[in-house]
Design a protein around this nucleic acid. Structure first.
Length: 557
RNA sequence: AGACCCAUGGUGUAAUGGUAGCACUCCGGUUUUUGGUACCGUCAGUCAAGGUUCGAGUCCUUGUGGGUCUACCA
């Protein structure tokens, strides 16, 4: 591990450990707001927080940042917990809610009042905004700023007791209305909301703001390193101010750049629109960058963890190439996924010199990368299906597949000699006739015939017809929301999903379980969708195999 | 424009004053009963100008470019 280069956060942590800060303890937290689903960007934060804690013998708390009951809901809590566990992380018994601390938070708020560091402001939100000034001009003090401690104490208490209208009063920190950092111009600490909370019920009529609740919650949990994204950089002074005034555990906030991936988006609001306006089928649509969508697409936790490790942690804005994500998935699945035969676009092949009623059961290794994956049997007979694109009557140079007058090898089968194509009245090839070399069986080939190409096939009489959904990137431009004047949904890739209903697969696949991932030989990685029934199997393409032949053809055009 | 932050190949990310490295992509090749995998190789980078220093991607200054901030959201 010492050989691996350290990111700046790891360097800070190691420095702190060496100095003996906090007795060398490392405690991080992952603080989602339960108002949406986790996506690939959250995965980076989860892997970072749990990862560094694990590397330095520390712990990570899961804490729901549930300080706004108007937008948060219980069911998000469950989906978030599920996603984190699926990713492979465990918070043990350290599941917390900011709402657990509402009483303590209130007490700390009162402490600020008693210290003269906070005051109750009767101004409206419009007045407060007007007093705030701009980035180049200082703000002005609220007329309520000089209230006595006694008055503030009474008013804050009555806010808590629900004696006032929603929006009529707020508690503000008393800092500096002329501060160059806008966040320090007497930020709000509490607002009145007569809204029931999904955790605390109707106990509270006031709810703390993020700028107050977050540092104090970190401090209550003795978080040593509070990792967050860059947009909170300007909030660090207020984070530090609260903890210093309160004299509580000095948690430290450290900001890193959020993850961006091209050809997709990670804005909660923008993802929500895709769902609500039916551009996708739901939050778990396999094209969504949500963890639930990626899970259904066939991404593995290990591949996402590897990705999170490879994208790095730094402070500059970044856009990661989605090909890195795909690389991580292929890398993981290449080692783990069993190979199966599936013909996406079937073309019938008749082996004219093969006995009509004969079926041979060929031994097929499940995964050449992993002998322990074992073998299975697949049928071979006179009639087979191959991919339509694996036959060409008039092929280009270096086409190593089936073509009249040439030999080709079938994986776990025989070498075929292609005799002729049978066409319908439109000239469309509907069937190909071949002969086989009986002494060329896979594993015991004594024919001496040299072939360049190896095709996959599915035997016709035992074939099972299934549905396959092919997926491509959701957007057809690298940064869909780059131009604020152009609606990002105009960049949705109309071919992001293609449904194939006449796919032929080998009989072994009848035993597939939902969520099981296979490599369809020469095609890609496919996962059995949970919508499948015993009669109707649906496979989602997670990612295609790299295809240098297709790339070569594309280049020629 | 006020404050804060950032700037290394196409994309990411290292190098903590001493040989600019790694990964992905791209391109080329070897192996291959997956045009997959594996392996090898090519191309390609320190935003600019000054300064400090024997020596600067690194430190200083200025500039340029980009990001964040003016929600009773987080």
């Amino acid at each position: 591990m010492s050989e691996k280069s350290k990111n700046f956060i790891e360097q800070i942590i190691e420095g702190d450990i060496q100095k003996g800060k906090h007795g060398g303890a490392v405690r991080t937290r992952f603080p989602p707001e339960p108002n949406g689903y986790l996506h690939i960007g959250h995965a980076k934060a989860i892997c970072l927080n749990f990862g560094v804690a694990n590397d330095y013998n520390g712990t990570t708390n899961l804490r729901f940042d549930d300080t706004n009951p108007a937008t948060e809901e219980e069911h998000y809590v469950e989906s978030i917990k599920k996603d984190i566990q699926w990713l492979g992380y465990d918070w043990d018994d350290r599941l917390y809610f900011a709402s657990d601390y509402f009483q303590q938070l209130y007490d700390y708020g009162m402490q600020l009042v008693e210290q003269g560091d906070a005051y109750v402001d009767d101004s409206s939100s419009e007045e407060i905004a007007a007093q705030k000034g701009t980035v180049t001009t200082p703000g002005i003090n609220s007329p309520y700023r000089e209230r006595t401690i006694e008055e503030n104490r009474d008013l804050f208490q009555r806010m808590k007791n629900g004696e006032f209208e929603e929006g009529s009063r707020v508690l503000r920190a008393r800092i500096d209305m002329a501060h160059p950092n806008m966040n320090m111009r007497d930020p709000l600490i509490y607002r009145i909301k007569n809204v029931p909370h999904h955790q605390s019920g109707d106990t509270w009529h006031i709810y703390p703001m993020y700028d107050f609740a977050h540092p104090v919650s970190d401090s209550i949990e003795n978080i040593t390193h509070s990792l967050c994204t860059l947009e909170f950089e300007n909030h660090r002074p207020i984070y530090d101010w609260f903890l210093e005034k309160l004299g509580t555990f000095p948690s430290r906030q450290i900001e890193f750049a959020r993850l961006n991936v091209n050809y997709t988006i990670t804005s909660k609001r923008k993802l929500r629109r895709l769902v609500e306006e039916c551009f996708v089928d739901g939050w778990d649509d396999p094209r969504m960058p949500t963890l639930s969508g990626m899970r259904r697409r066939g991404f593995t936790p290990a591949s996402i963890r590897q990705f999170a490790g490879k994208v790095g942690v730094a402070k500059r804005d970044n856009v990661i190439d989605i090909s890195l994500l795909e690389h991580c998935l292929r890398d993981d699945l290449n080692a783990k996924a069993n190979r199966m035969m599936a013909i996406l676009h079937p073309l019938k092949v008749v082996i004219t010199n093969y006995p009509e009623d004969k079926v041979e059961w060929m031994e097929a290794e499940n995964n050449p990368e992993n002998e322990a994956a074992g073998i299975r049997k697949m049928p071979f007979s006179r009639e087979l299906y191959i991919e339509r694109e694996d036959f060409m009557e008039d092929p280009p140079k270096k086409y190593f597949r089936m073509t009249p007058g040439k030999h080709v090898r079938l994986k776990h089968g025989y070498i075929l000699f292609c005799e002729k194509a049978i066409k319908d009245e439109n000239g469309e090839v509907v069937e190909v006739h071949c002969t086989y070399a009986p002494d060329s069986k896979s594993g015991e080939d004594t024919s001496g015939i040299k072939v360049r190409g190896t095709l996959h096939y599915v035997e016709a009489t035992h074939a099972r017809q299934v549905e396959v959904r092919l997926y491509d990137r959701l957007f057809n431009v690298p940064i869909p929301d780059e131009n604020p004047d152009v609606d990002y949904t105009t960049h949705i890739n109309p071919e992001s999903r293609k449904v194939l209903t006449e796919v032929m697969v080998e009989p072994e696949l009848a035993n597939a379980q939902p969520g099981e991932i296979f490599q369809f030989f020469r095609k890609g990685y496919f996962i059995l969708d949970p919508d499948s029934t015993d009669e109707h199997l649906i496979f989602n393409q997670a990612v295609a195999l790299r295809d240098s032949w297709a790339k070569m053809q594309k280049k020629k055009k």
